[in-house]
């Protein structure tokens, strides 16, 4: 549905986007992940034809965005980072205008409009001026705008920014639901969003692709150990002895002194070995009670930081 080949965008000497290639299949939700300034928005702006690329091609539904812009743009619904709203219009007027702009026939629009407004839950504010709506509602109107004309491809630039947690969950559900009939590319720097919504992730850093894979594979790929923190009452050297002799423990560190003879430790162990049970038994035998135990999973956050700081593994598809 969306084919991107060797896309590069240069601003003077700065390469905002550096030789990016990937394809998105029909009905797929692709997450576009990267730190601020990584080139996410630039790429999206190129995909939608708002700005041009220096080199490389973008094809939407087989149509080149530069050679055949009008045709290609018909297949795109775009929600930019800042929703493109006319503040002096009511929601109704605005959506009608968008439908006109995208030359949706009035008959088609009549049947579509109600569905779209219900889908993003803005029916009850449809007569209000956009400038009087809250940020969350503005975002929804922006999303509604992208849905006008039921385009095949939805490109959403940070769609949940500025929403409250409840709204975020709603919008994510909505995106998931939309993903059944649309191809969706969404950018974000919020990682849980990716694991919650996306089928596949592109991690981009300094304009380059650092990794492309499913969120699950990315987690597996990088997290080859389990990690937890434990607080134990007992003399440090004795406890340390016990812990380091446990089977599977690869790394041990005293992270904090809580009280006299109460320390917390960070332990990293083989992923296949559960060290918690033997640890409990051993410590109990020696009379050193565990006061607190919590697992520190390698989150997507950390994976992300690893990838974007070292650019270690370049996984091409």
């Amino acid at each position: 549905m969306v084919e991107i080949q060797n896309l590069t965008k240069e601003y003077g000497k700065i390469r905002a986007v550096d030789n990016i290639s990937f394809t998105v299949e029909k009905g797929e939700i692709l997450g576009f992940l990267g730190p601020n300034g990584a080139g996410k928005s630039t790429t999206m702006n190129i995909l939608t034809g708002y700005i041009s690329s220096t080199s490389g091609t973008v094809k939407i539904a087989g149509k080149d965005i530069l050679e055949n812009p009008s045709e290609a743009k018909k297949h795109i619904g775009y929600l930019p980072e800042q929703p493109p709203l006319y503040m002096d219009m009511t929601v109704n007027e605005y959506l009608d205008f968008c439908a006109n702009l995208k030359s949706v026939s009035s008959k088609e629009w009549k049947s579509q409009k109600k569905d779209i407004m219900e889908l993003v839950k803005i029916t009850h504010v449809s007569h209000r001026l956009i400038k009087n709506l809250s940020k969350g509602y503005k975002q929804r109107v922006g999303l509604a705008q992208a849905l006008v004309g039921t385009p095949d491809v939805l490109i959403l630039d940070e769609p949940t920014v500025g929403l409250d947690p409840k709204q975020i969950i709603e919008i994510r559900k909505l995106i998931k639901a939309l993903g059944k009939n649309h191809t969706i590319i969404l950018s974000t720097h919020i990682l849980p969003e990716v694991s919650a919504v996306c089928d596949r992730v592109v991690i981009i850093n300094k304009g380059r692709i650092a990794a492309i894979d499913t969120p699950e594979n990315l987690s597996k790929m990088l997290a080859d150990f389990s990690r937890f923190s434990v607080t134990i009452a007992g003399p440090q050297n004795k406890v340390k002895d016990i812990l380091s002799n446990l089977y599977g423990v690869k790394y041990l560190e005293v992270s904090n002194k809580m009280n006299d003879d109460e320390y917390s430790y960070i332990i990293e162990a083989d992923k296949d070995v559960d060290v918690r049970k033997p640890m409990f038994n051993q410590l109990a035998q020696n009379g050193f009670p565990i006061l607190e135990l919590k697992s520190l999973n390698l989150s997507l956050e950390e994976i992300f930081i690893q990838l974007t700081t070292t650019e270690a593994k370049e996984v091409a598809e």
Binding site: T48, Y50, Y78, P80, Q82, P83, P84, C98
Partner: peptide, 14 residues
């Protein structure tokens, strides 16, 4: 200024 330019320029209108 309002970013509505994006809406116009990414629509199928020339």
């Amino acid at each position: 200024k309002n970013g509505t330019e994006v809406l116009l320029l990414t629509s199928p209108v020339r």
